[in-house]
Design a protein around this nucleic acid. Structure first.
Lengths: 206, 206
DNA sequence: TAGATTGTTAATCGATTAACAATC
DNA sequence: TAGATTGTTAATCGATTAACAATC
């Protein structure tokens, strides 16, 4: 959440739009409208038009949006029209699942460095990448100029790992550890904690 | 997002509060304040007090909140002071990671039924649970009266799986498939798509 | 042209926050 | 008592939405 022209909540919806556009494209559609998109996403059509208007004019009156064009434009806005090198810290069950998940690479996020502290894991090769000693984190990430990291460590070390990452220039952290990280305001952090999502839903259950 | 007395955004913060309280408790603290909590979570203290005020009075002027008590109260509010049976649909790499993840059970979410469509997987036993044919989903979930489900299927079948789940009484869905599900307004859905989180952050990168 | 849909404005709605009396 | 912190009010801030002129 950085001070910015465009509200962060709008930025947060763009990947959702992108995902829907990808799906429509795969289904062979060529055009869509703010109404159709909104229906699919459970969002008002006005909101979609307003969100897009922060960045330019992407549609045509009467016909709507060309799906491929809008997809490319949003990709550019989000800077996902290129590849990003990602560091993964923690190669436990979760870190291994993250590594094996094909969805990152197909979207341009390549895990190019993996770290763990377990001597039994350090040195092993996983799909061409050697698991490195977390003691070398500072050196390796500095050298490779990696800007994006995924934390999949135990919760006890997550904050100190984050501190190290930030110290060597990482600007965006996807944190799987169940803890809110304390970071400077210019650092991006996103959280994945499935338990949080489940707990949010049980409130509504009868 | 159901029509409700308490704003859904407030409900969404309660699990975060719970997580912080758990941590403080584990660190041996006995009391905390809205200020301390807010600092740890990057949230204003007034917001925390306001959020809690929707449900009652849990603190004491001058001393703040007893951590264990507040934790228990929020647990009750969220209905996570009991166990929940969970169905898992899809036993690919992701579904397997979800099954092996210990974090669900320790928070009271027990995966009590696993479904897949692959004949090579159906019938196998995983930690005491047999992988069942997705063709039996309707029967099994109806019989076991399961209310919470996790979708970890390929994106192509996620919507139809969701439709089936809802038809047999599932009220809360945690969806790992990269698609926005269309569901009735009384059904809770939460999404986990790490790519969405990463794409949201790259916008801010230089 | 007639119909459809955009981009944008202004109104509405809702969430956050500052301030403070109450009180432990 | 003095200091600290709550719960709550009212003001501020920001996001959503309805409406419509413009135009494809």
């Amino acid at each position: 959440m950085t001070t910015s022209e465009v509200p962060d909540i709008v930025i947060g919806r763009l990947p959702i739009y992108l995902r829907a556009l990808t799906l429509l494209h795969e289904e062979g559609h060529e055009f869509t409208s703010s109404q159709e998109l909104g229906q699919k996403l459970g969002i008002g059509s006005a909101q979609i038009r307003k969100d897009l208007s922060f960045f330019g004019e992407f549609g045509k009156q009467g016909t709507g949006y060309e799906i491929k064009y809008l997809h490319d434009q949003i990709s550019k806005i989000l800077k996902v029209n290129r590849d990003w090198a990602v560091a993964l810290i923690g190669f436990g069950a979760l870190g291994q699942a993250v590594t094996n998940y094909g969805g990152f690479a197909t979207k341009g996020f390549y895990i190019e460095a993996i770290f763990d502290s377990d001597p039994n894991k350090i040195g092993k090769t996983i799909e061409g990448r050697v698991i490195q000693d977390i003691a070398n984190l500072v050196e390796v990430i500095t050298r490779q100029k990696i800007k994006v990291a995924i934390i999949a460590t135990p919760v006890q070390v997550a904050q100190q790992v984050a501190d190290q990452l930030i110290a060597v220039g990482v600007q965006a952290i996807l944190n799987y550890a169940p803890i809110t990280l304390t970071v400077p305001s210019n650092i991006q952090v996103q959280y994945i904690d499935p338990v949080v999502h489940l707990q949010r839903m049980t409130y509504y259950l009868t």
